[in-house]
């Protein structure tokens, strides 16, 4: 009897442990499964996703996600990233607005100033841009030298007088100095062609003006055609074919005067090309240097 009772108690104990096990499982399941439900819109997840978009260069979506995150938590780094995103998609107006919101207490305050300078340059608002560049240079902050570099380089794009070469090149390092020195020389002594000289040359020898402006094929064609029509006019006059002779004379005069006018225009086109290539070169240099802005490790 006692043995029977003992077995019964042991069986009941096992049953009790079994149901307790089920109970504990249910509790753990409900808690873990709730944890496993992905909350796509929790602030942390929004930020992680936005960081992914930012590093994937999907800046527009990154901006929307960062803005959502900011509605939960105020964060200067995120404000800065939004501004960088606007700048990257070339929305410089919004970039400027965002960079201006970075507080002085933020660790990215200095960076925001140099980035703001870059945005102002890209916005092409010269007066504001140069004033702000001077402000950064005079503040003797971490990026004053960068501001001086971008300011000096962009001065090459204006039609104002440049400072002395040594002063101009002072902020740049040795490698940059080589390129900037070349730009400086090309700006101060551009290899322009004179329209008057081109015109005079073509008056003396048809096509010579065009050759002077390095338009060789046009120069040779003009020389040959003018010569040919002159010859045809001459021989026709000689053989008393006056009607034909006058037609060839008109054609020859047309080519001759047209070539003089064309040579002057060719010199102007040549000079415009020189200016265009110079400006493009300077802009490309600035772009390659990323406008002397720092490199960030947001995507490491």
């Amino acid at each position: 009897m006692n043995i029977f009772n003992f077995k019964k108690i042991a069986s009941l104990k096992r049953m009790l442990f079994f149901f307790m096990g089920i109970f504990l499982q249910i509790v753990s399941i409900s808690s873990t499964s709730l944890c496993q439900q992905i909350n796509f819109h929790s602030p942390q997840n929004i930020k992680s996703f936005a960081d992914f978009l930012f590093c994937d260069k999907d800046y527009l979506r990154a901006i929307y996600e960062y803005e959502k995150y900011l509605s939960f938590i105020d964060d200067d780094t995120i404000q800065f990233k939004i501004a960088i995103s606007y700048s990257s998609i070339n929305d410089q107006i919004d970039a400027v607005e965002k960079f201006k919101t970075i507080k002085i207490t933020s660790p990215l305050y200095e960076e925001s100033k140099i980035e703001l300078l870059k945005s102002l340059y890209l916005l092409n608002v010269n007066s504001q841009y140069f004033t702000y560049a001077d402000e950064i240079i005079e503040s003797k902050s971490r990026y004053s030298i960068n501001a001086e570099k971008i300011k000096n380089t962009s001065r090459l794009l204006l039609n104002h007088e440049l400072p002395d070469k040594q002063i101009f090149l002072f902020p740049f390092d040795e490698n940059e100095k080589k390129t900037l020195s070349n730009f400086y020389d090309r700006k101060t002594n551009p290899s322009y062609k004179s329209g008057i000289i081109a015109g005079i040359l073509s008056t003396i020898i048809p096509g010579a003006g065009k050759i002077y402006t390095k338009d060789y094929s046009d120069g040779i064609t003009a020389f040959l055609l003018t010569g040919l029509f002159t010859y045809l006019a001459y021989t026709n006059f000689e053989h008393n074919h006056s009607e034909r002779a006058w037609i060839f004379t008109a054609a020859g005069v047309g080519f001759y005067t047209g070539n003089i006018y064309g040579s002057i225009a060719s010199a102007q086109i040549f000079n415009a090309k020189i200016n265009f290539e110079f400006d493009e070169g300077v802009k490309l240099f600035l772009q390659e240097k990323n406008y002397f802005t720092p490199v960030y490790d947001f995507c490491k």
């Binding site: 499982q25 399941i29 499964s33 496993q36 439900q37 992905i38």
Partner: peptide, 22 residues
Amino acid sequence: VNKKILALIPLLLINVFSQNSK
């Protein structure tokens, strides 16, 4: 046997819940 089944249930359910949200 039941213990084995019980051990599998949470794993299955975790997966199901996570799949549901996706």
